[in-house]
């Protein structure tokens, strides 16, 4: 690990005034420290923002504001979240391990980097780590990698579970840039596809800070499910995950949300399938048809063809569980 200086600015203003490209924020440190130890990140200075940012979950208008420093574990026990946005808690609980969730922050979870194994091994080519060096995964061990939205530059997936639920619920990310300008970014626009800049995971302006994640009031607190399929039952990233939420009225689907993790460079919404579900009666055949829509355009890589049938089964199962679980 490269030597660095460490400081703990007491407020947002101070934190932003010191921030520049070679300076990095640290929240829970559960991702940044690994990246530093593996010589993937090498900041000259590290700013501990754990006290500079909010760690509160507060009512905001009719919605909720989750402070950037709210720990992942706090989300899973908060009364407001559990009663009004339980999908979020369920997604968080499917991630990492209790110890990591106790440390991990909300903002850090959004900004955690991909788990593509080549990204973590600096002796291998990787466009995300070293633009222009090539992508080892595309013809390598890509069992865990993308099936939609990728290009030949990068086939990595975003590893978060929390973000899948936030994408499904159309959350927004509140940010402040170096000039103190505040910008609210809709969740669907927060993370990006690799495009020509695979080194960038998201659209957070350079040197900006996340202050909170906001979720508007929504009707998805009753019929929802988060299904995560992985190689082991805890402490493993998703092969495929599905956040499903239905708003049922008079035995019809008034509104539906369907998002996946483990499939793309960003949390992925299945808009066409959502559209299909609207107005239909919830039934096994409806869900099966929606699952078919989900998988119709996915294009697996050399080693992850299984994700197609797994995703199909996961979508069906998650939708079914919206009714019963």
């Amino acid at each position: 690990m490269k030597p660095f200086t460490f400081s703990k600015p007491e407020n947002l203003g101070k934190a932003l005034s010191i921030k520049k490209d070679t300076v990095q924020f640290i929240a829970g440190g559960t991702n940044l420290l690994d990246l530093m130890k593996k010589n993937i990140a090498g900041p000259d200075a590290v700013l501990d923002i754990t006290t500079a940012l909010s760690s509160k979950i507060e009512q905001q208008g009719k919605g909720v504001r989750i402070g950037a420093m709210v720990r992942n574990s706090a989300i899973t026990t908060d009364k407001t979240i559990l009663s009004k946005y339980p999908l979020v808690a369920k997604a968080v609980l499917a991630g990492a391990s209790p110890q990591i969730r106790n440390m991990a922050s909300t903002a850090g979870n959004l900004l955690q980097r991909t788990r593509c194994p080549y990204f973590y091994d600096i002796t291998t080519p990787c466009n995300k780590r070293k633009p222009g060096s090539g992508c080892s995964a595309i013809n390598g061990e890509n069992r865990m990698n993308a099936i939609v939205g990728y290009n030949e530059q990068c086939v990595a997936v975003h590893p978060s579970d929390l973000c899948v639920a936030l994408a499904a619920l159309d959350a927004t990310v509140a940010t402040t840039d170096k000039n103190k300008k505040q910008l609210s970014i809709p969740f669907k626009d927060f993370h990006k596809l690799p495009g020509d800049t695979p080194q960038l995971d998201n659209n957070l302006p350079a040197n900006a800070i996340i202050t909170s994640v906001d979720i508007a009031e929504n009707p998805f607190s009753k019929n929802f499910y988060y299904l995560k399929l992985r190689d082991r039952d805890s402490y493993a990233f998703a092969l495929v995950s599905v956040a499903a939420a239905l708003h049922l009225q008079d035995n019809h689907i008034a509104d539906a949300r369907l998002a996946s993790g483990g499939v793309a460079h960003k949390p992925w919404r299945w808009y066409e399938a959502e559209q299909y579900l609207k107005g239909k009666a919830p039934s096994a055949s409806t869900f099966s048809a929606a699952a078919d829509i989900v998988i119709k355009d996915v294009k697996p890589l050399s080693n992850n063809g299984f994700k197609k049938s797994m995703l199909r089964g996961a979508v069906e199962t998650a939708l079914q569980n919206c009714l019963t679980a």
Binding site: P117, Y118, Y120, D121, T123, T124, S136, N139, G140, E141
Partner: peptide
Amino acid sequence: DKNLGNLVG
């Protein structure tokens, strides 16, 4: 990895 010879993950 069959191309690079490194252990993956």
